[in-house]
């Protein structure tokens, strides 16, 4: 069974935020305004934050999304198993089961889970641009990055139709596919020959807040070395 992981090279990242836009577009993440964002209502699955990392004199721009922990604090506390760790290590969310108690959002040390405070407000012009492969979330449920799980399902179906095994290039999340600086690498961490597995073993590799025992599968490569 694959263990999907993502490596982000902070030395290559230019902070252009193309991944942020790609993610929002790919996953039908509703729009926010600066006013709503100031009140804590920013809807985003991927954003750049200014993080103080060890050994760096100033804050670094860190692309932050669900860290896809192997020991996720969020799934433990969910009273209805609406969020759970699937067998391939992706932290999934069953929208129709979520009761909106927001315990998972509070348990997550990365604060990456977002809540639909209101029903999504889609401008008419944008409605036809939505991705038909991703369901729209109703008001009152929690959502977060799924490593573009719908792309995995599609890739697996394509491979099955062609009568072959799924290849590494078949499944890549939108942020990785978009990154113009090629700072993001995605793949199967359990495959020792994969690029992500090699990069995860790099001396520059670190997992953010790994001291909390969350065992994330998003791995960052330290900059400035």
């Amino acid at each position: 069974m694959a263990r999907w992981g993502l490596v982000i090279d902070l030395d290559r990242c230019t902070g252009c935020q193309a991944c942020v836009v790609a993610c929002k577009h790919e996953n039908n993440v509703p729009f926010s305004t600066p006013e709503t964002a100031r009140g804590g209502r920013l809807m985003t699955w991927l954003q750049l934050v200014a993080a103080d990392l060890p050994g760096r004199p100033t804050a670094s721009a860190l692309p932050l999304m669900c860290q896809q922990c192997d020991r996720p604090p969020c799934t433990d506390v969910c009273p209805t198993s609406a969020t759970y760790l699937n067998p391939e290590g992706i932290v999934a969310q069953i929208y129709p089961r979520c009761i909106g108690c927001r315990y998972c959002t509070n348990a997550c040390p990365y604060a990456v889970k977002v809540f639909n405070w209101t029903a999504p407000d889609w401008p008419d012009a944008m409605a036809p641009m939505r991705n038909p492969d991703v369901s729209l979330r109703p008001k009152g449920v929690v959502e977060t990055c799924t490593f573009c799980h719908h792309r995995l399902i599609a890739a697996r179906e394509r491979a099955r139709a062609a009568g072959r095994e799924i290849a590494p290039d078949d499944y890549v999340p939108a942020c990785v596919a978009t990154c113009p600086a090629e700072a993001m690498v995605f793949g199967d961490l359990s495959d020792p020959h994969s690029e992500v597995a090699a990069l995860a073993g790099s001396p520059r590799a670190f997992r953010w807040m790994e001291e909390l025992g969350t065992q994330p599968k998003v791995i960052y490569l330290r900059e400035g070395e």
Binding site: V77, C78, P79, T80, R97, I99, C101, Y103, G140, V141
Partner: peptide, 21 residues
């Protein structure tokens, strides 16, 4: 406080006993 009070019974229909809730 629930985002979906209409689904409150999910705690009985789909209980997850590792949750302190």
């Amino acid at each position: 406080d629930l985002g979906r009070p209409d689904r409150a019974l999910n705690v009985i229909l789909h209980p997850h006993f590792r949750s302190p809730l």
